[in-house]
Design a binder for these strands. Sequence first.
DNA 1: CGCACTCTTGACTGATTTCAATTGGGGTGG
DNA 2: CCACCCCAATTGAAATCAGTCAAGAGTGCG
Lengths: 250, 250
Amino acid sequence: MTAADKACLKCAHPGDALELLCAPDAYAAPPASMAPLARLRSLVPGVARSIIPGQHVSLEGEASGQVIGVLSGLVRCFRLTTDGRRHICRFAASGSLIGLGLLGVQRHSAEAVTASEIITFRAAAIDVALDRDPRVRVAILQSLAEELTEREHIQLRLGRFSADQRVADFLLELSPPQSGSLDCDIPMSRADIADHLGVTFETVSRALHRFDKLRLIRLLDAHHFRVLRRNGLTDFAAGDQPVHLQLAQA
Amino acid sequence: MTAADKACLKCAHPGDALELLCAPDAYAAPPASMAPLARLRSLVPGVARSIIPGQHVSLEGEASGQVIGVLSGLVRCFRLTTDGRRHICRFAASGSLIGLGLLGVQRHSAEAVTASEIITFRAAAIDVALDRDPRVRVAILQSLAEELTEREHIQLRLGRFSADQRVADFLLELSPPQSGSLDCDIPMSRADIADHLGVTFETVSRALHRFDKLRLIRLLDAHHFRVLRRNGLTDFAAGDQPVHLQLAQA
DNA sequence: CGCACTCTTGACTGATTTCAATTGGGGTGG
DNA sequence: CCACCCCAATTGAAATCAGTCAAGAGTGCG
């Protein structure tokens, strides 16, 4: 039996005991947002392929002439500062498009976080289709609108939230919106989270364990947690901190 | 002679002695990016009007069914957190469009920083034009691409730069790219800058005076500065800090 | 002429980073 | 199959950066 056989395919973290904990597409965007990529796929020819964790998808600045869609798994999009640190601008889950905007010029590098399937479109093909088919135009505009909304939120989080608030807010994104106490997985490493939230991985770790102590979540293991009090997390992320009072007791 | 007569019309900061210091359209985007709004204006009917500093343009969350273009002046786009703090997501200079994405639904509030002229398009009109005229499509996509690129940079700055680096980077944005030592104005208040960079206004003030001491810039007054060593600023913003060594001496 | 507001500056506090040590799990090779 | 190694994660302690609090200066406006 190989490692791959034992691995939890959903989250790509090895270990069979926890397979059942992996919520189906836990990090996936709501169904509605699958639409743009699905529609694009039906209207523009593209080449699908599978990639393994860590495998690179695109390189910052390259004029690859490609747009990439994530069909399954999770991809991290990042840039490096001149002094070598990394900033993960976003995690692209299934349904996300990478490289829109200046068609075909990559604004950032991208690598697989988990085993993923991606589809590659030629930017030129999309450009042509944009002229011919209004449905393509709608799909692209919708995808751009979604990314802009997502970025707006990320920006607010970076600009105005404390370290713990950022982590709480991120956990809310990881967990399905409605469910009160479902088990969720954390596909990415602490370092990935840290580089996305603009904090250190130690701070992420501490925050998670603090939430565990406060009974907001239950850390099942390093990559799985259960939401115990979603409202508590929400309040905490929002800055209402009745929870902070409990912090002293904890 | 009224206050308005004496005011520097470019930056809307009163005082006649400094009128000549106001670089023409100092904060304006490069000429190329004027294109989308200019083109849109020639293809879609819109209503222009003038607004005074502080006057509100749009309200977060409202489904106004409008898209706003900035013809001159400067507009701040912002959101408020639940605990009442403000985050300025971006400063929209002449040529910028506000409210693109989910057409007609405002992702944020907007107010004039300086006396500005804006033009209001009906989202429905743009939507119709998008179907009919490919040039509109190009203009909208280009504008979205520009905003996304801008946001990507802002996000990196918030996520990975120290307070001083953020201010240095912001100054670079305020000053025309090429000129070595031209005078620039700072149209917005310290608080505006702080709420954009995710720091306090005290920190902004301190950073500016530090750069002045280091001879990277010359602060002419609270709202005007001269770039002395652009490379120094660039290095500082990038994290190379040969300058920091001088900091001890200063 | 004085009020109000923005900006500057200093001293202190505290959150987060940095540095360092330890733990734990998984995969590899013996 | 077991021991070892490596990497990720956790945890603690010290150091630092930026925030908070507070006082004072400058400037425009009434």
